[in-house]
């Protein structure tokens, strides 16, 4: 009986993953038709944060609202930068999550911190129920996007769109986060023609964004 249930769930998940993957190639419009979208923005270290905030500055603040920023612990720099572009406290919220692996951390202990960062993502995504996740490749976007994808697979938050913008400095190869998340995203943007031709038919290319 349990075996049957187990295989049923696995079968369902596989079917759902295949459908999501195929539909992500067509970039269907969102049928929510709501006036605004809960937007989650994932900030990483240095360059990633600067690039992401340039995009956020251009978003229509009345439509992409409320905005949930995700930063890794001890990343005061990203917090300072985002505070310089946000002024209405009712429109945004900042979440802090554990980093999967700090520099010089041993691989063994990083298993636990990775697990912790996945667990951190569950309440985060449950409270904010994003309609859109914007990320551009810092390490912490991997657990957030994987958990958001699983919630989609099991129809817990199926209205969530994951948008990945590959960093400006990626000219010929995808970043590791990009490779991991490529087929989980609903929209994947690269900024250089060579990369657009090479990776997959799935990627979108608008020219450089910077």
């Amino acid at each position: 009986m349990f075996m049957l249930l187990f295989f049923g769930i696995i079968g369902f998940a596989i079917g759902r993953v295949i459908t999501l993957c195929i539909s992500s190639f067509f970039h269907q419009r969102n049928y929510l038709n709501e006036a605004c979208a809960n937007t989650m923005i994932i900030l990483g270290s240095g360059g990633h944060t600067t690039e992401m905030l340039e995009i956020v500055k251009k978003l229509n603040k009345d439509k992409y609202v409320p905005r949930f920023y995700v930063v890794s612990e001890n990343d005061q720099n990203s917090v300072d930068k985002l505070l310089s572009i946000e002024n209405d406290k009712s429109e945004y919220k900042i979440y802090v999550i554990t980093r999967s692996r700090k520099v010089h951390q041993s691989y063994f202990s990083s298993i636990f911190t990775t697990l912790k960062s996945f667990i951190d993502c569950i309440p985060l995504l449950h409270h904010s129920r994003p309609n859109l996740i914007l990320c551009n490749g810092p390490g912490i976007c991997v657990p957030v996007c994987i958990v958001a994808y699983l919630l989609k697979v099991f129809y817990i938050n199926s209205a969530c769109r994951i948008v990945f913008i590959e960093s400006y400095c990626r000219v010929k190869t995808l970043s590791l986060s990009g490779w991991i998340l490529l087929y989980m995203t609903d929209l994947f943007v690269v900024q250089w023609p060579e990369l657009a031709k090479k990776v997959s038919r799935k990627v979108m290319y608008f020219g450089r964004l910077t």
Binding site: Y31, N33, E34, M204, G207
Partner: peptide
């Protein structure tokens, strides 16, 4: 020349149904 950020934003607006 500055990049095509506006083109992406337009696409995103459309993609989100705005």
């Amino acid at each position: 020349e500055t990049g095509n950020l506006n083109k992406f934003i337009e696409y995103l607006d459309d993609f989100m149904g705005f």
